[in-house]
Structure formats: structure tokens, C-alpha cells
């Protein structure tokens, strides 16, 4: 039996890779990479889930069954790094547009 989270992970990663590989617009490639990162984050968090667990925070917690803490910390790291990478990729797209006049990845680049 395949869990619903894993199906979502497969759908997100396949959609992200297909957008990153098949699309010609550079902005759509960046969006595909972002969707793929979301799939990886969902994979990490759902791998650390414990049945019936709560978030690993002891402030007024209802029960002491807690989900694993390390995947959540790594997911926080991954989110921040994907933000930085997305900002850099978008800046490169803007600079390529202003230099070459197009963000199509399969066109002739050099403006003559």
C-alpha cells in the first residue's frame, strides 16, 4: 500500500522535472525547480513522521509522542537555501533578458 504523501512526492518531483526539462521559458524552468524542491521537502518531513505524534515542542504539549526532529531542521535549512537559489536564478534570468533580449533557452542567444 502506497501512502498518499509518497504519491504527492512523486507527482511533485515528476512535474518539477518535466517543467525544468521541457519548458523553454526560463521563468518556468525556475518554477519547476521550485516545485521539485517542495516535493523533496515533503519527502523529508513525511519520512520523519511518527504515527500520532505532535510537533517536537514541549510548551504545553498534549502528549509526549513526538515526530523526529532532525528532518524538520534539515527541511528548514532546505527551504532557506531554495529561497536563496531562486532569488539568484531569477536575477540571472533578468540579466539574460536585458543582455540578449529573450529568455527562451533554445533561441540564438547572441544579439547582433
Amino acid at each position: 500500500m502506497i501512502d498518499i504523501q509518497m504519491i504527492a512526492v512523486v507527482v511533485l518531483i515528476a512535474l518539477g522535472i518535466s517543467a525544468a526539462v521541457l519548458k523553454r521559458n526560463m521563468i518556468k524552468v525556475v518554477m519547476g525547480i521550485g516545485v521539485m524542491g517542495s516535493g523533496v521537502n515533503l519527502f523529508l518531513v513525511s519520512m520523519g513522521y511518527v504515527e500520532g505524534g505532535v510537533a517536537p515542542i514541549f510548551t504545553n504539549t498534549p502528549n509526549l509522542t513526538m515526530v523526529l526532529a532532525t528532518p524538520q531542521a534539515l527541511t528548514l535549512t532546505s527551504i532557506v537555501i531554495s529561497l536563496a537559489v531562486t532569488a539568484l536564478m531569477l536575477s540571472f534570468s533578468v540579466m539574460i533578458y536585458s543582455k540578449y533580449g529573450s529568455i527562451d533557452t533554445r533561441k540564438r542567444r547572441l544579439k547582433e
Binding site: 519520512m47 520523519g48 511518527v50 510537533a55 517536537p56 523526529l68 526532529a69
Partner: peptide, 29 residues
């Protein structure tokens, strides 16, 4: 492994058990 049953995780059990006494933080993350 199926979602919800991650098996043995000694490192995370150590973190959850000792995070309050060692770092003084309620938030294990």
C-alpha cells in the same frame, strides 16, 4: 518504510529526551 513508522531512530530519541536539559530549549527543532 511506511509513513508514520520510521523504526529505530536513536539520534532523534536522544535529541528529544535531552534537548531540554542540555540546551534549555523547549523547541527541539
Amino acid at each position: 518504510h511506511p509513513v508514520g513508522f520510521p523504526g529505530d531512530a536513536p539520534m532523534d530519541e536522544y535529541f528529544i529526551r535531552n534537548s531540554q536539559s542540555e540546551t534549555g530549549s523547549n523547541n527541539v527543532v
